[in-house]
Amino acid sequence: MTTTAPPDPRESRVLSRVLGSPSVRLIGKRVLMAVPIILGVSILTFWVLSLIPGNAAQQVLGPDATAAQVRALEQELGLDQPAVTRYLDWLGGAVQGDLGNSLISGQPVSGELGSRLAVTGELVGLAFVISIGLAVPVALLAAYKPNRLVDRISMVVSITGLSVANYVLALLLVLVFAVQMTVFPAIGFVPLSEGVGANLHSLALPAAAIAFPLFCFYTRFLRGDLVDQMQGEDYIVTARAKGIGPWRVLLRHAFRNSSFGLITVVGLNLGTLIGSTVIIEQIFALPGIGQLLLQAINTRDFIVVQACVVVFAIIAVLANLVADLLYAVLDPRIRYGSR
């Protein structure tokens, strides 16, 4: 083999194979598609907030402010500029991580968001761990013998659970575990720095309130998918015809395939879930991003509102993106570009 030609043909072939491989192309496509969506969301937010009647500067300063004071603040905040200019200004800052300063406190929004995201993130993460951790074994047990006792109970519980609004459940939990039994605190948050135990203790009820409907949803989804496969798919019959045990068939063949769909569903959920943290954080007085948003809405701090909404949207888009990509990386049918 000669090594005379400057561009090594093998190298370029490897490169083009990597770039041309279905999964890499797929990842590239999905990432590129996420960017306009996030941009679109930020434009929509900006537009909707600018439609809101009333003068932001007037509202910040209060009804007693003179016209001159209002104009001065408008100039300071750039509110006298056309909406397009203001959006581009904001976008320029946003891509550098500067989401503006709060109208009320004057503090940079980015810093505030960071610490609050951690609280919300922990809450949501905990809810996911609880709900999936419980849903998987319950769904497997239910699908092992469909239409038998365990299955029936799990179906009744899950359709009931899906009909309970999370704020209703939250109040119920507070009523039972905080007011009557006083085993968990009704409100408040203990940061991780003050001990894992105390931290988890303070998050137990809010996490449970979010986790229960999710648990019901995942149980239903997973059980349905497993039963459909066990009763309708030929490869399940093949597996059974090999003489392997029923649990093996369920776990290795049906659950393995269901897990890909579950990942996608979890990713899609994250978007809606973020929204539901607003009300849960309000009920339990947790210093998360949802609480910040609600405060900002009530004080008409539209800079903070804008930042929060965009962050929520980015999280939702990224979650979908990650779910898509995980699905593509894990499921060999997509990985090798057959579909």
């Binding site: 598609m33 306009p36 969506i37 996030i38 679109g40 969301v41 929509l44 937010t45 909707v48 907030l49 809101i52 978007g271 973020i274 929204g275 539901s276 607003v278 948003l293 609600l294 809405i297 509102v305 929060c308 909404v309 929520f312 949207a313 939702a316 888009v317 979908n320």
Partner: peptide
């Protein structure tokens, strides 16, 4: 896609 990615409850609150 943009609307679906939107945290609808959140913006509904603001509106």
């Amino acid at each position: 896609d943009v609307l679906i990615a939107f945290p609808s409850l959140v913006l509904t609150l603001a509106v």
